[in-house]
Design a protein around this nucleic acid. Structure first.
Length: 756
DNA sequence: GAGCACTGC
């Protein structure tokens, strides 16, 4: 029986089913305990250090703002020095420092929150290792970089931004005194473009390396090359530089792969205190994991004390909201004597205020059940979780280099991911993890999640590598090589944009490509900006590209559809979605009086809520907030647009681009978009359907587009989204002549193909 | 007439 949300009859059905199933105790046999001979797993699945223990709590509850968690200012009763000595890593300090002093590479494995990230940089500094330069500690997420810097500067009893600082996009809190620099991996990578040898640093610590973000993966190669190159330079009699060390630290990872890649680097394990987690598998394979999740929630609810919270890992917003409604319905009809239940959904696109609900304790005698996406795997840490229910499924993006299509699909998690999820049950105390699959099924999961670099569009990565001066991008030293097709497809795409050219059989960066690489943008957006002065519309194009680089500024609550449509009508442009967005942005700026009221250089852009940025500091004036509410515009993302635009504008100025507005002449903006995005063009067919001009695959206008009702002859689009059909999203009306003009040779070829 | 997980520069 499917878990559906709205049908009352059906939920009653579910109640009866559950009462039959749990009330009578029939469900006791639903679960099978893990084979006792197999205790907690060990190397390599997962590595020995990955047993579960509580993370050190770095956050405190803000009194004035209920539910808000901020970095802990230190325990009043326990001095900070004592706290540091209580960390498990402290026992290993002498050996650790001795090892790190001798080694040029080390892989340190320790649990998240065990203190490795806060302590190792300090140990290095205190031991005088790498004093000649800076120690960089990279993080995949900005909040982590910010909060860790805060904690360490506090431990060093210095002002944040002096000895200890952080660098993330839009924010750099460091100075000439800074020795310990926490930063996002993307920032270090960007810095490497200007300084491939990373000469300002004596030590680079790549934290959370097991997450294998694209940035970390590229950094592996960059850091390794810089290390080798610097060693070569040190052979020159006039010795420059000093001890140079790379540490890769992570909780769960493929140790052999890492060690092998970093020249057979030694692996140091940091064991810590841990809480056991009991793992349960289902006896039989579950064909409907949502139904199984529902049964499990209520089984736990019946059997466990109400103070024990439950965290359920699911795949997305829609199924989370549906299951939440079903759970609430059933909870209302439970027999007397059963504790009440609060059901809280958690996913990234949820408004900040609602996300905060997961941190609020449930009323006494009431059980908290959190239904979450994998945001709760790494980005948000919730205390008090005693039970984890793991559906074993995740929604993940995959890229097909042949079609250029990214597909978001529900798929099995990896073993590493399943362990990560289980670990969420044992952060403060022992816990249980109910896996909605059999142990045999688990044994067949892939060991590690496929690194992002093998799943994404590589055009941006390849451009960045070229800009880093990597002589042979096709054979870059990746820890996990992307497929040759993906590399070839990316190189072809960049050639088409004019960023790369072939010289004597080698692919080299063009002058245009070099400029493109200086923008933190997808290559085609960078190209469009660089073209914009030719059409005298750089102002407009900067705004449009900024609007396209944030999540979405449009807020679409389904329940208020009519209101949304009415509010949006006044901005709608018959020329397409880009122009509509531009109209909204122009109106927003008019109301904001062009003042930097949101974001802005010196503003901290986010508060830290237990490891998750949830709101921008509310500097948005009330009037502007009201305007956003009335017009169904996401004010937080609109603030980000302003930050992005300011950054892009700075880059344009550095490149001496002429910044000017075309005013009401929107034709030139569309002309510019046609020239920048010609690869993403589609043509209306006689039968009313559309064909993408590059691959000749059938495509359709996404119903969310303002052009959905119309039938424009030619459009350029932002992206293709493959769901029930292949949809074009964010469209702009263009002339066929402009496309031909933009790439005569390319379209000459395409059109000939199209006709034949 | 659809519906998108999560990051990051």
């Amino acid at each position: 029986m499917p878990v559906t949300s709205n049908a009352c009859a059906e939920s009653i059905h579910v109640v009866t089913f559950l009462q039959r199933r749990i009330g009578a105790g029939a469900a006791i046999g639903f679960w099978r305990q893990r084979d006792p001979r197999r205790t907690m797993p060990h190397d390599p699945d997962p590595p020995p250090a990955k047993r579960f223990k509580p993370g050190s709590v770095f956050f405190r509850l803000e009194r004035n703002k209920p539910g808000m968690l901020l970095p802990r200012k230190g325990n009043v009763t326990t001095p900070i020095e004592v706290q540091r000595k209580q960390l498990p890593i402290y026992q290993a300090k002498p050996q650790l420092v001795t090892q790190l002093r001798q080694l040029s590479n080390a892989i340190v494995i320790g649990e998240t929150g065990s203190g490795k990230t806060t302590q190792i940089p300090q140990y290095l500094y205190e031991a005088g290792i790498g004093r000649q330069g800076m120690i960089a500690i990279t993080q995949p997420r900005r909040v982590a970089a910010i909060s860790l810097a805060g904690r360490v500067s506090e431990e060093k009893r210095t002002q944040l931004g002096k000895l200890v600082g952080y660098t993330v996009r839009f924010e750099d809190l460091t100075c000439s005194e800074t020795k310990l620099r926490f930063m996002t991996d993307g920032m270090l990578l960007r810095e490497a473009i200007g300084d491939p040898l990373l000469l300002r640093y004596t030590v680079v610590v790549l934290d959370e390396a097991h997450e294998r973000t694209v940035h970390t993966d590229v950094l592996f190669g960059v850091v390794k090359a810089a290390q080798r190159r610097r060693r070569e330079l040190n052979k020159i009699p006039l010795k420059v530089g000093c001890g140079w060390l790379v540490i890769v630290m992570s909780a769960t990872m493929d140790v052999d792969l890492f060690s092998e890649y970093f020249n057979k680097s030694p692996v140091l394990y940091l064991e810590g205190r841990q809480h056991p987690i009991q793992i349960y598998y289902t006896k039989q394979s579950q064909s409907d994991y949502l139904q199984a999740a529902l049964v499990s929630v209520f089984q736990i609810h019946q059997e466990a004390p109400a103070s024990h919270d439950v965290l359920v890992f699911m795949t997305g917003q829609e199924e989370i909201e549906a299951l939440a409604r079903t759970c609430r319905d059933i909870a209302k009809h439970l027999p007397d004597g059963c504790s009440p239940m609060v059901v809280i959904p958690l996913y990234a696109s949820l408004p900040p205020a609602q996300q905060l609900r997961v941190f609020q304790p449930a009323p006494k005698g009431c059980r908290k059940v959190i239904l979450s996406t994998n945001i709760a795997e790494t980005s948000v840490t919730i205390s008090g979780i005693k039970y984890v229910i793991d559906t074993g499924m995740v929604k993940a993006k995959r890229f097909n280099p042949d079609s250029g299509l990214e597909v978001l699909a529900v798929q099995r998690v990896s073993k590493a991911q399943a362990w990560q999820r289980a670990g969420r049950a044992g952060r403060e105390d022992s816990g249980s993890c109910y896996r909605l699959y059999t142990e045999q099924e688990f044994d067949n999961f892939i060991p590690m999640t496929v690194p992002e670099i093998q799943r994404c569009n590589l055009a941006g990565v390849m451009l960045q590598l070229m800009a880093l001066g990597i002589p042979d991008v096709m054979n870059f030293d990746f820890m996990s090589k992307p497929s040759p097709e993906a590399v070839r497809s990316a190189v072809e795409h960049l050639e088409l944009l004019g960023a790369l050219e072939r010289k004597n059989g080698q692919v080299v960066l063009t002058a245009l490509g070099k400029k493109m690489a200086s923008f933190p943008l997808e290559p085609r957006y960078a190209k469009t900006i660089l073209l914009s002065p030719d059409f005298s519309c750089s102002d407009e194009v900067l705004s449009i590209v900024s609007l396209l680089s944030v999540d979405t500024v449009l807020y679409n609550p389904p329940a208020r559809r009519e209101e949304v449509l009415a509010a949006r009508r006044k901005f709608t442009s018959s020329e397409g979605d880009h122009m509509t967005l531009l109209n909204i942005y122009r109106a927003f700026k008019k109301v904001s009086g062009n003042k930097v009221g949101l974001g802005g250089g010196s503003q901290r852009d986010g508060e830290v809520f237990a490891g998750c940025t949830m709101t921008r500091r509310a500097t948005c004036p009330p009037l502007l907030q009201e305007w956003c509410r009335e017009n169904f515009v996401n004010s937080r993302n609109m603030g980000l647009v302003k930050d992005v635009q300011a950054q892009l504008r700075d880059i344009c100025l550095k490149l001496n681009l002429k910044l000017e507005s075309c005013g009401a002449d929107t034709g030139s903006v569309r002309r510019c978009l046609a020239h920048g995005m010609f690869v993403n063009a589609a043509e209306l067919q006689p039968d009313g359907s559309y064909l993408a001009l590059d691959t000749h695959q059938p495509v359709a206008i996404h119903p969310s587009s303002v052009l959905f009702q119309g039938k424009p002859a030619y459009v350029v689009f932002n992206e293709l989204l493959h769901t029930s059909r292949c949809y074009m999203r964010d469209l702009c009306l263009v002339d066929a002549d402009w496309l031909l003009d933009a790439a005569p040779e390319y379209f000459g070829r395409k059109l000939r193909l199209s006709k034949s």
